[in-house]
Amino acid sequence: MSELQFKRFTLNQRIQHIIFFATFILLAYTGFPLKFPDEWWSRWMIASVGGFDNRTFIHHASGLIMLGVSIYHAVYHLILEKPRYDVLFNFQDVKDFWQQILYSLKISDEHPRFGRYTWKQKFEYFGGGFGAVIMGFTGMLMLNPFESMKYLPIGFVQIANLFHTWEAVLASIAIFIGHFYDEHFGKFPNLSWLTGNISEEEMKQEHILEYETVIADYKDNNKNIIRDNPGLEGLDNAIRHRLIIALSKTIFTIFFLVVCLWMLWISYSTLMEAVTLYVI
């Protein structure tokens, strides 16, 4: 394929993303059974990682790794690298959001013109950031409860537990429903998390402002448009075989729907529990 590829993620960012989502999945997988110990799937899930002790070890280890990646991310992008400001919210995002709603409801026929980061991607990025801070802080408090009870009353450890559970539900809904639908289900198969590149078509549709600046820059300075990782191109072509796409999309759809139902069940039961405890 000779179509243009636009660089979206550096190798460093891709590795950060892979570590982050791998630990996220492990944490959710070993964490939610502890919230619902009476459910049939909890026992099954704990047994699948080899018992309760393994669960604790996996949860703690992946939590620490995730914390490490988050700290590295902040240090790398704020100190080691020149911080970029186009990821921050600005007034244009409100306009874009409003335009997207008008477009979706067929009131306006004009698609919003996004820059490098859409308002939703900014939301997810900062949501993930704040989530990592809350989960990391409360998790460290509960990692050794007796040690933290030396300095804090047990009420604070219980509040940390409350935060940890709620934030887990919130983050899992955002990732397993919102992020999966937008970035992986809607754009299936979206391989930019592996190759780091996105196609010209997607660039025009989703990041038109960035596309225009990159093309203008290219024409002005005669720069190369980056084709990152040529070695992965073979994988990219192979995976675009129609049968493979159909099969993998079916599997992904089933997986996505199951996880969606699971998340809905979890949010329903946590909400009901909270309402009976605190509201009624």
Binding site: I159, L162, F163, W166, V169, I173, T270, L271, V275, V279
Partner: peptide, 14 residues
């Protein structure tokens, strides 16, 4: 504080 956290997250999740 526990009730406050719970109210906040109920609203957030809904």
């Amino acid at each position: 504080l526990k009730a406050l956290v719970t109210y906040f997250y109920i609203a957030m999740i809904i």
